[in-house]
């Protein structure tokens, strides 16, 4: 019923509910249901003989104002999201668990491939070494920034203060896992793949660590800038 170009009738309500901590899926469905309900009410008022403007005003009054609609939602603790209820858990501990989980997948995959070939008595195929080194490179360079981006997206969905994805980024940068792989030579058997905590060594190691750290914290900085532009209250 509301024409294009007009502001969405529940936009302010959406921001209020998300900022207060209501789970995004409940907010999305609530606003969709309210929108449909408002359309039904407007149609009912028109059918009762009111012109469009009066019908919209009367329909909105029956639906409730933003305060009524927000309070009804905010009074229900079950509808709040976990990131809003326990941000220290989600942005402090989950990044570590996510990183371990995401690192474990390629390591297990490689171990299965190598183990399968070892059992059959042969050596790993030629592409195995390339695959391993590629996965190690991705694990060290791409995984922490990508994981940090996921946490920044999670924070943005809930309109959380920017300090939370920043904490997640710092946790990922500081306790980021450093995978290493080594192969003795192109014509010899064996090799090793390691995963664990390590401090960077040498100038190159530190430069690499600094670069990964900057990339890992970048999503939180971008999120903070976005928040500042869309909301005058700093996060």
């Amino acid at each position: 019923m509301f024409s294009k170009g007009q502001p969405m009738p529940f936009e302010a309500l959406r921001e209020r509910l998300l900022t207060a901590g209501i789970a995004p899926q409940h907010v999305r469905r609530y606003l969709a249901e309210l929108s449909d309900h408002l359309d039904d009410l407007i149609q009912a008022q028109r059918d009762a003989g009111y012109d469009t403007e009066d019908a919209e005003i009367r329909a909105r009054a029956r639906l409730g104002d933003d305060d009524d609609l927000a309070q009804a939602m905010l009074a229900r603790p079950a509808l709040y999201s976990l990131p809003a209820r326990a941000p220290w858990l989600v942005f402090g501990l989950f990044p570590l668990a996510a990183l371990i989980g995401l690192c474990a997948v390629p390591v297990v995959l490689l171990a299965l491939i190598a183990g399968g070939h070892a059992q059959s008595g042969g050596s790993a195929p030629p592409w195995f070494q390339d695959l391993t080194l590629s996965l190690v490179f991705l694990g060290n360079w791409a995984l922490p920034p990508l994981t940090a981006t996921l946490f920044a997206v999670l924070a943005s969905r809930q309109r959380l203060p920017a300090r939370w994805p920043l904490i997640a980024g710092i946790v990922l940068a500081v306790i980021g896992f450093h995978m290493q792989a080594s192969f003795p030579g192109p014509h010899s058997h064996g090799g090793s793949l390691g995963i664990g905590l390590s401090f960077p060594g040498g100038q190159t190691g530190w430069l690499q660590w600094l670069a990964v750290t900057a990339l890992t914290i970048l999503p939180a900085i971008l999120y903070r800038a976005w928040r500042r532009r869309s909301d005058p209250i700093p996060g």
Binding site: R29, E33, L34, H37, D40, G64, L69, A72, M73, L79
Partner: peptide, 28 residues
């Protein structure tokens, strides 16, 4: 939702008539 609100109003003779939008948080 819209049908539920209408049914509540009809069944109670309009005695129970909340602001209609507040039914949804209860349903969720």
């Amino acid at each position: 939702g819209y049908e539920i609100v209408a049914a509540v109003a009809a069944a109670t003779g309009q005695v129970v008539a909340p602001k209609e939008g507040v039914i949804y948080p209860l349903l969720h």
